[in-house]
């Protein structure tokens, strides 16, 4: 009897969770890649792909309400204090594009997004505006890198998607060949920041470990910023061979804030997520190559031999 009551209570809980936020779908379209929806909840606007949340934005202030992990894309300043050109692969709802436009008005941003519907939605519903400092290219990220002769100080990768069945990542943006290409388009002191979803503590072959290991083949230093409120990990790779430890990162952070180079209010807090130890799965995860990039298996809970 008691268990029945508990079950009932659980059911009610689930139902209430579903009804608590009256969601209002204000845009919906099938693109070649996803079911793209824009959903308004009280105070926040959400971009959803196939039913999972890609971007959140406060309706009162477009610079608020975003996912925490996007703030780790400000960390490249620690390693390069003279950022002028940034390439972002993946637009989504444009959280990071809006932030760069707002906080770093002199930085030129190129954004590459494969899905034309996403570009349209970002412009119409998420306050992303093309300008002399923000160009949007409708293309595949790797193809764009292949064909550009531009050099960037920072390359930011956020091409991840999630669904109820787990996350997925374009395999051709995970390989040694891809990172070689990216490194060749970075300036001498260039920094690459890469969003991935995974578990730093997993000891089985895993995507964060595999990406870390693959990046380490090309870049002399790779660091990790695990997000506090989600499973996102932003891996930061530098072309500079100079190793940074926790204290050095905090020091540089303080200096950047004092000199008002970085005015993101949470910058100091984000830098405290800094880790310079590799993910635990790094020893057992494979180096990913164009020839062998079993990302599906690595994200499905491992089981791939080195």
């Amino acid at each position: 009897m008691k268990s029945l009551l508990l079950k009932r209570a659980a059911w009610c809980g689930a139902l209430c969770l579903a009804c608590q936020a009256p969601a209002n779908v204000i845009f919906e379209a099938h693109s070649p890649y996803h079911l793209v929806q824009v959903i308004d909840e009280p105070g926040v606007r959400i971009l959803s792909f196939n039913g999972t949340r890609e971007t959140k934005m406060s309706l009162h202030n477009p610079l608020q309400g975003h996912f925490e992990y996007t703030e780790y894309f400000h960390t490249p300043w620690v390693w390069n204090q003279d950022i002028r050109r940034v390439l972002m692969l993946g637009l989504g709802g444009g959280s990071i594009q809006r932030a760069y436009q707002h906080y770093y008005t002199n930085v030129m941003v190129d954004t590459v997004e494969i899905d034309p519907v996403v570009i349209k939605v970002a412009k119409e519903y998420f306050k992303v505006q093309e300008s002399p400092t923000l160009k949007i290219h409708n293309q595949d990220g790797r193809m764009f890198l292949n064909r550009t002769s531009e050099a960037y100080d920072v390359i930011i990768l956020d091409a991840y998607t999630k669904s109820r069945y787990g996350s997925s990542i374009p395999p051709h943006l995970t390989t040694k060949e891809f990172f070689t290409l990216a490194a060749s388009r970075l300036t001498t002191n260039g920094v690459l920041a890469y969003n991935v979803i995974g578990d730093m503590q997993d000891t089985r072959p895993e995507i964060v470990g595999a990406l870390y290991r693959t990046m380490k083949e090309i870049f002399p230093q790779v660091y990790a910023f695990p997000a506090g409120t989600s499973l996102n990990v932003v891996l930061v790779a530098t072309k500079s061979a100079m190793p940074f430890d926790y204290a050095r990162v905090q020091r540089e952070g303080v200096a950047l804030v004092l000199r008002r180079k970085v005015t993101l209010p949470t910058f100091g807090e984000r830098l405290r997520s800094f880790r310079n130890v590799p993910p635990r799965s790094v020893g057992v995860s494979p180096v990913l190559t164009d020839d062998r990039a079993p990302v599906e298996t690595l994200m499905g809970g491992g089981g791939v031999a080195r």
Binding site: P32, Y33, I114, Q139, D140, G141, R142, M143, P170, P171, H172, L173, T175, E177, F178, D290
Partner: peptide
């Protein structure tokens, strides 16, 4: 299809 995606992009096409 997987093999071609690295050059033509991860595109639907």
């Amino acid at each position: 299809a997987r093999y071609l995606a690295k050059d033509f992009g991860g595109s639907f096409y």
